[in-house]
Structures are given as C-alpha cells and as structure tokens.
Nucleic acid binder design. Structure first.
Length: 252
DNA sequence: CCTCGTTTTCCTGCTT
DNA sequence: GAAGCAGGAAAACGAG
C-alpha cells in the first residue's frame, strides 16, 4: 500500500520513504535505505536526525546513548566530520555512525555520477536501483513468533490517555512496536506507529475516528499540567513529567 | 440537572 | 507536499 505505482524512480520516492513507519531492517541495510535518496551532503538537519534515529533503531541501540544536540548540523557539516569527530561526539556509537555515513556518501556519489552520465550504461544492470517493492513493501517482518498469546496480564490502571500510553510502555509485549522507550530512566519515549496507537486509543474509547492528530492535541494539554514535558526538536517524542506516576522502574 | 475535569473535534499557522 | 507541532476555541462526555 501507499507504494504508488511509481514510474519515477527518484523524485516520488524521496519523501515517502522517510516517514515510513519503523523500518526495522537488519544489518546490511545501510545503503538500502538511503542510497536512492540525495547525497547526504544535501540533507537538512531534520534528515540528519532522522538518519541518526534510524541507525540507532537498526542497531537496537538505546537513543539515550548519544546526544542528538551534538548533531545540530545539516548534511554538509555532517559529511565533513571525520572518524575522530564521530568518536568525539558520539562515543562508542561513533564508529557505527561513521561507517553508515561513509557508505551513504559513496552510494550518493555513485547515484549522482550515474545520473550525470545518465541514461547509458548499455548495461547489465539497467536503471533498476531497487525495485520499489524492495524497500517499500510493508516489511511485514514475522520477526517475533511472540510465543505466548498471553491471555491475561495485570491490566490497565486508569482510564486517562497518559495512563494508557504508560501501560503500553510497561507492557510492550501486548502491543509490540507501537511506542518505545527512548530513555527509560528519564521517562522519554517515542511513538513508532502513531496512527496505530491512535486507533488503539480510539478502540478503548469506542471511537473509531480517533487519529494521531487528535490524540496529540490531548497530549499537548498535558504539558501545562506537567504530566508530560516537552522534548524539543524530535518528532513523536515525549517525556513524562513530575505529575505522571507509575512509570518509573522503581515505583512500579 | 449542574459542575468540573478531561478529551475530542476543528482550525490556523508554523516547522521539519 | 506530507506529517508533526502549537495552542485557541468550543463541544462532548463521564463522574460525582
């Protein structure tokens, strides 16, 4: 779905791939995800952060291991960083990031060259960079047989939205891949499938027309009441505030 | 029935 | 352009 029978290999794919939900892809991925995009050189700061996020996801590294603020830069600046720079600003994750960006620079350069020399390579590999299906298919990864249907679990405590969110975080096995902790001890979390969460919330409230748009408005009301705190810059990321109870490991 | 707190719906404008 | 984010305004809804 949403794969749009694209005839245009470059342009149309560009934007849609970014927001694509939760690309849980295994190693070997790197060139895959971004190769078709512009050279990292041309990324905006937003794209840089998206890249960071995805690399962390793919390696299943907790996002609290790096400071996103240290990557307050656009693609041009990013490309100018050397190996040591990455170590400096990202510590042990540095090498992984360096490796990823190096691959992407190469891939990007290759694509540019290819476009310039355009058209002919009278070639064994025509202009098929990647079949659309390659990366846009739902990736319905049957990853987790998730052995147990787990019929009964503790069960929700409270009827409020923030409690609903908290309980998903506390019992991820119930709804895998919807929301994930970004920093467990700080109470920072991120929506992976925003619309799916909204659907689930709507289901609970017997409201089939719930959307993330509306759910997020309710979330924003929590800022004033300090049930949530703002997390700037990063989309779909929230943080529990002092008036949110029951999410800490200690106070379970 | 009324009040109050919370959420829903809709909207305009801004950002990524 | 699409998807999120910010909040204002007003209506809806459930609890008490």
């Amino acid at each position: 779905m949403s794969v749009s029978s694209s005839t245009n290999t470059w342009g149309s794919l560009q934007t849609s791939s970014w927001g694509s939900p939760n690309p849980l892809v295994m190693p070997g991925y790197t060139s895959h995800l971004w190769a078709h995009n512009s050279h990292p050189q041309f990324w905006t700061k937003y794209q840089v952060w998206d890249w960071l996020q995805q690399v962390m996801d793919m390696h299943q590294i907790d996002a609290s291991n790096i400071a996103f603020q240290n990557f307050d830069m656009d693609g041009h600046q990013l490309c100018n960083l050397g190996y040591q720079d990455f170590i400096l600003i990202a510590g042990s994750v540095g090498p992984i990031l360096f490796h990823s960006i190096t691959e992407l620079k190469l891939a990007g350069t290759f694509e540019i060259l290819k476009r310039q020399l355009s058209l002919d390579f009278s070639c064994p590999f025509p202009d098929v960079t990647y079949a659309p299906g390659d990366m846009y298919e739902p990736l319905s990864h049957p990853l987790g047989p998730v052995a147990s249907p787990t019929p009964s679990l503790p069960d929700p405590r409270g009827t409020h939205l923030w409690e609903f969110i908290r309980d998903i975080l506390l019992n991820p096995e119930r709804h895998p891949g919807l929301i994930k902790w970004e920093d467990r001890t700080e109470g920072i979390f991120r929506f992976l499938k925003s619309e799916a969460v909204a659907q689930l919330w709507g289901k609970k409230k017997n409201n089939s027309s719930m959307t993330y748009e509306k759910l997020s408005r309710a979330m924003r009301y929590y800022y004033k009441r300090e049930i949530l705190e703002r997390v700037d810059g990063r989309r779909l990321v929230y943080k529990f505030g002092r008036n949110a109870r029951g999410w800490k490991e200690s106070e379970k």
